[in-house]
Nucleic acid binder design. Structure first.
Lengths: 202, 202
DNA sequence: GATGCTTGTCAACCGATGGTCAATAAGCTG
DNA sequence: CAGCTTATTGACCATCGGTTGACAAGCATC
């Protein structure tokens, strides 16, 4: 006689739907700009159910971020067949391309970094992996001298700053920005007294 | 017969007390970690009174920050009698010294940047002033080519990254870090194709 | 010392938020 | 159709940032 008041989904279906929706929403709104009530409403479910699948707002955010970082990590994986300098150039290029395609998401992410400790941890982890990858690529061991480690890690920050400036002004070609960033890395390594690590591409 | 239920202070007294307390608290806790109720309790007054003096939490935060940035700006003002390269070196050194003396405050600030739009605006403004100061010091006009602007602005981000790495590991002398940063700026300017802007100190 | 006035101060309240819980009902199984 | 599992919900809670109107501290005046 009467229709069901709600549709029951299998756990994995519902979870997938929610993750997908959250990714969409967090790509356009910063962490603080979204309420769990709003997400639930948008998903057509109750807030309680949302909490049944993700125990906290932060966990939901981190879960969607994890997805994105996997995607990003894969997209910027340097091709093994290229020599380190060229591989790095291609990685940076792929990274910038990803940013261009997800500009708002990138900005909102940087906005959200402060809000959630776990997000800071996650971003830090990505930076760690990335700098390890770079250090490996340029032939520095896993335990480089402090100045070299600082050079690489600080360069990753420089990258974020340069990208924000780029997105704000849009007066540089992507290749120009890429070349600048590669040059800046070389400069930082030189300043760290590690000129010998610079390959043919420096 | 009965004692007064509370002590009345003059507006400027109360305001000074609150600003001082807020500076202390925000130096040890990030924006999101502090509630107005807590601040009021700690000050021994009601929340309503706190709001009487500062119309919002963000305004209170910004007010305390303004104080700190004035202090910082003054401390890193480059001495006019020094030639630009030496002046920059001294500015950076003074900045690093300030950080060393206010380590927790600096970290908490960077944590808070994302949370409050107004804070982002304020930090941006400081970065703008600083980069203008640098561009002026190295002899670039007020309207440098995009690559040079990007180089300087991104270097400020690199500075924050390097400092966080420094505070985390503490395995570099302050002068080492300062020299690295100056070298990195030179490297960034070179990468921006602005080698001619590098003075004798580059 | 009583009176009045200015204004610094507070208790009580509001809507929204992140988060919890017991009860309900969708929809498969026999 | 009965019974069971469990996905789902409405009602609730503490806390947050912020607001409001009434109270009273302490000075001025007589």
């Amino acid at each position: 006689m009467s229709e069901p008041a709600y549709r029951r989904l299998h756990v994995h279906e519902r979870r997938r739907q929610l993750l997908e929706l959250a990714a969409e929403l967090f790509a356009t709104h910063a962490f603080a700009e979204l309420s769990m009530a709003r997400i639930a409403r948008e998903a057509g479910i109750s807030k309680a159910l949302l909490y049944h699948y993700f125990p906290s707002k932060q966990e939901l955010f981190v879960a969607t971020l994890q997805q994105a970082t996997e995607e990003l990590t894969a997209a910027t994986e340097p091709p093994a067949e290229l020599a380190p300098p060229a591989a790095l150039a291609q990685s940076v290029d792929a990274f910038l391309a990803w940013i261009e395609a997800h500009e708002t998401a990138y900005r909102k992410l940087l906005e959200s970094v402060g809000s959630v400790p776990e997000v800071r941890a996650l971003v830090d982890e990505v930076r760690d992996r990335t700098s390890a990858r770079i250090l490996d690529g340029i032939g520095a061991g896993p335990n480089p001298p402090p100045r070299v480690r600082t050079a690489v890690r600080s360069w990753l920050w420089q990258m974020d700053g340069a990208i924000l400036d780029w997105l704000e002004h849009r007066d540089l070609a992507r290749t120009e920005l890429r070349d600048f960033l590669l040059g800046a890395l070389a400069g930082a390594l030189m300043a760290a007294g590690a000129a010998e690590l610079l390959g043919a591409g420096g």
